[in-house]
Every structure is written in C-alpha cells, then in structure tokens.
Design a binder for these strands. Structure first.
Length: 485
RNA sequence: GGCGGCGUACCCAAGUGGCUAAGGGGGAGGUCUGCAAAACCUUUAUGCGCCGGUUCAAAUCCGGCCGCCGCCUCCA
C-alpha cells in the first residue's frame, strides 16, 4: 500500500518514497503575472493544492514552493501596451492572482519566490554552466548548449535529431544549435536590465526555476510539477541546467496536469478561447468549479463548458441537503431504542469510509474516485436516516459520518460551507432578485394559508418563488427554502 | 514528419487481467406528501471506437485500422 504517483519521467506509476523520511519537498511552476488567470491556471493551482493537502493529510511534512515569473517578454509587452512600468504590471497581476486563488480555496504554498528576487542565484548558475562548458556567451546573450547535455530529452522522450525535422521556427543565428536556449538575454534600450558579467540583461525563462528550486529545496528534491505544456521545453531545460550545474539528480517525481479544452481545443491565451477565473466565479460558486475539476483525474483533459458546471451544481446541492438533514436529525434526536442490526451495518460503512478514501487518493491522487466514495456515503447516510434511527449508536454514527466527510472533503477543500452559506451563495451566483427576509416573509404567509387549508394560495406562493428559482420544502416542523439547481 | 495521449450509457466520468462495469447529472416508474420538493427504491451499457490475436479469463495485454487531441514556438 501507500502512495503511488505517475511519474512523467518513467511513464509509470511509482511507489512514492521521499528523500527525507516523512518530509516532501515539492516545486511547482507558477504563473507569469501579465494578465488575469484563466480556468486552465485554476486547474493547475487546484490540482497541486490538493496534492499538497493530501500529502499533509498523509502525515508528511511538506515544503511546497511555487514561483511567480515576474520578468518576461509578455510582461514587458503588456507594460508597453498599457503605458505602465513592467514591475507595475507584475505587481497588479500578482495581486489579482492572489484574489483568484483565495476565492478558489487554493492555499498559499510555504514559499512563493519571485524571479526578480533571485537574479544573483541565477547569475551564479549561469557562470557555473559556462565554466563547465555547458553554456556560451554570444554578443551579450548566454545560451545553454543542449548538445553538451547527454540526457537531454529524457523527460519529454524526444531526441535532438527528430526534433530538428519538425522545427518550425527560425533559428537565432547566434545559437550553435537550434534548441540551445537563452540563459541570459541582453537588454534592448529601455528594457529592464540587471548587471551581469556579460553586460546588462535579464534572465531567460527556464533558469529562474533552477535557481529558485535549488535555493529553497536544495539540489535534489522530491516532486516537480506543472501543466503538461511545460514538459517541453521548460522542464527539459530545467533538468539540463540543474543537473549540469550541480552534477546531481534534480527532481525525482515529475507530475503534470492535463489541459482544459474548449470545443476539444486547448484553452489558451493565444487561441483566445479562454474563460477567466473571475468570469466563471461570477456565475458559479468556487466549490462548483473545484468539484468539477476534481471529478476528473488530474492527468486527463477536461472539456470545459458552463453546461458541465451546471451539471455539477446539483451534486454539491445533494451533499448540502444531506448535511441539512443531519442537522435536523440532531435537533430532534431523542434516544428511544437499543442498537439494532441496521445501526451496526451503518456504523461499519462509516468506519471503513476513510480507508476507501485513502485507497483512492493513494492511487495517483484519484480525486474522482475519492469523490465517488463521498457520494456513496452520502447515499448510505440518507438511506439510514430514512429509517428514523433512534439509538445512541445511531447518533454517534451519524456524527462520525459527517465528521469523516468533512475531513476527507477537506483534503479536496470542497463541501466546506454550511448549507445556509451554500444557499445564500447560490442566490448570488444565480442572480436571484429576492432577499432571504423576503423569502421568509412569503414562507410565513404560506404557513398561515396552509394552516387554513387554503391550498390554492399556498401553491400560488410556492409557484411564485419557484419561478424565481426558489424551492420550498415542507418539513414536519416548518418550511425551508432552497435555490433550484 | 517525430513523440505522447485519448475513445466506457443520453451527458460527465472511475475502473488498466478475474466478484452482478463505480459515482454524479438526466430520463422512466414507484414509496413518502394536501399537492410538491427532498430523500430512498427499481430501471436506463450482456456492453467498454472497429477488427483480429494472447489467455482458463480482457474494457483492461499484443497487433492492425478508424476518429479525436496535445507537444515539437510562448503556454497551466
């Protein structure tokens, strides 16, 4: 038993063994802060947030590092477009990023280094690479010579010769080989620049991750992650830089999340087929997005649409409805019976639940199966409550069931609200133009009608609310409202 | 052209050698209810893109074919 992780490097699921006992060091490539994040970024953030939460749940200590790329061509371009300074652009979108992540329930990693805060570390690695003969300077630029690194291509499973055939981009004449990549770029007039032994310039993209992972996690660490589009060339280049510079292995397990697609095509800025996180959260509760994304294994592509999110809403509603039922159960609980066979049966289901959850998550973070187990328990719980249990054992089992669901769902950071918060949130995201006090007022009016057996008026009130998207449920001790999903 | 991946019901989706192919949504019927809603029960793939092969046994392994996607350029 124990955790197994699919390692992009080997192409297989491997038993996870951290280098240091009980402590995991993990580095994930973060975002370039030049624009608002889209749902694709949300997926990556949520996937690795969940992985880190599960590692902690599994009693590992975790040092999770996720960087910000805060200097880059796209930032400079954006700054020019908006007539701002490049660092203002980076700062603005870093703030926006935090706002999105906080709403998505993505926890901040232990360390969130910025590229511009690690220029000295990068220069040191570059100098080492030149000394060791892996890099060369050419007119103020410094390039990494991929041909010098024998293992180049092992992560992305490709070799230089076959890539040559498919090359689609003009070769920079300063490069010795087409796939050599910039460690250091000479600055043009007016561009941000740092001093270096090779003149004023700025870092290439890949070097920052080698520098920051080394500084915060050491030469060799456990997990390196990111979106699948980073496998080549970004992660391949990181490996080349880090291994050549240190002479040691780099990351042991490589984890890559799959893409979000729209009409079967990868969601991306360049194709323009993206939804920002913000757009989506205007219409859907963050938990809906989270459940939707975690209902598919992290490596598989996800076809994104509003319809799919709409389909996800009732499944959350099912959980919150059950929680509400449990609250009512406790409110009116009176011990009346001895433990029965049924009580024992349910108790058994509850007691084995966590093992099933762990089994699913241990299998390469199978969140989809884990969520399915939660729904299984929800059904069992409802079935049990239908039987009106009234023993002391039943009270304890129901309490434990809820506690277990909360704990395990907490690892996925879903189902964290109270039912009341959930319905209020739906009122908001569904754009329903009626307030809770107004709903309560109508419920009172309807209660009077029902007491007078004025079914016509009672039904009329219910229909009025129904048309607005509010459902009423008559319970033994009163009427409650829900938002129709 | 090279490399990688995917194809499971009306929709989403787990399962990668062996009990009746998870779970959610939707549909149909029922129990409950003043009527509803919720919940529960029954039902909705003798079937896992197609064709062969290996095996006592395959959605799961192998080969071929079809379809879709990704990477090879910045990208989560």
């Amino acid at each position: 038993m124990g955790l197994k992780i699919y390692n992009t490097m080997s192409g297989k699921k491997e038993v996870f063994v951290p280098i240091k006992d009980n402590h995991v060091r993990m580095y994930v490539c973060g975002v370039t802060v030049y624009d608002l994040c889209h749902v694709g970024h949300a997926r990556s953030a949520i996937v690795f947030d969940t992985i880190s939460r599960y590692l902690r749940f599994s009693k590992y200590g975790v040092t999770f590092v996720k960087n910000f790329t805060d200097i880059d061509d796209k930032i400079i371009t954006r700054a020019a477009e908006e007539g701002k300074r490049w660092d203002e652009v980076a700062e603005t979108y870093t703030k926006e990023y935090y706002e999105d992540m906080s709403r998505l329930g993505v926890a901040s990693p232990e360390v969130e280094p910025k590229a511009t805060g690690h220029i000295a570390e990068m220069l040191k690695i570059i100098a080492t690479l030149i000394d060791k003969g892996y890099a060369y300077e050419a007119g103020g630029d410094v390039f990494y010579e991929v041909g010098k690194f024998g293992d180049y291509g092992t992560l992305s499973k490709r070799d230089l010769d076959s890539m040559e055939a498919g090359a689609r981009v003009e070769v920079d004449p300063k490069k010795r080989n087409h796939f050599d990549f910039a460690l250091w770029k000479k600055s043009k007039e007016g561009e941000p620049a740092w001093d270096s032994p090779w003149g004023a310039g700025r870092p290439g993209w890949h070097i920052e991750c080698s520098a920051m992972s080394q500084k915060h996690l050491g030469d060799t660490f456990d997990i390196h992650g990111g979106g699948a589009d980073l496998i080549f060339p970004h992660h391949e280049n990181e490996i080349a830089q880090s291994c050549a510079a240190t002479g040691k292995p780099f990351a042991r397990y490589w984890i890559h999340n799959g893409f979000i697609t729209i009409d079967k095509e990868k969601m991306s800025k360049s194709l323009g087929n993206f939804f920002t996180i913000r757009d989506i959260l205007r219409e859907f509760d963050p938990e809906v997005l989270r459940v939707f994304l975690l209902s598919t294994h992290y490596k598989s592509p996800i076809e994104f649409s509003r319809e799919s999110l709409r389909q996800t809403e009732p499944s959350l509603d099912r959980v919150y409805s059950t929680v509400l039922r449990v609250e009512e159960f406790f409110k009116s609980f009176k011990e009346k019976t001895q433990s029965s066979e049924e009580d024992g049966h349910f108790s058994g289901i509850v007691n084995s639940f966590k093992d099933r959850f762990i089994e699913a998550m241990d299998d390469d973070f199978n969140t989809a199966a884990a969520i399915a187990h939660i729904f299984d328990l929800i059904r069992e719980l409802n079935r049990y409550l239908d039987k009106k249990p009234a023993s002391l054992q039943s009270k304890q089992s129901v309490a434990k069931a809820i506690e277990q669901i909360k704990e395990c769902a907490g690892v996925l950071n879903i189902f964290t609200k109270t039912p009341h918060q959930w319905y209020l949130a739906l009122l908001e995201t569904h754009g329903i133009q009626i307030s809770e006090p107004e709903i309560e007022e109508l419920i009172t009016k309807r209660r009077e009608a029902r007491q007078n057996k004025d079914w016509k008026l009672a039904d009329e009130i219910r229909n009025t609310l129904d048309k607005m998207g509010i459902i009423l449920e008559d319970k033994v001790d009163g009427t409650i409202w829900k938002v129709k999903v």
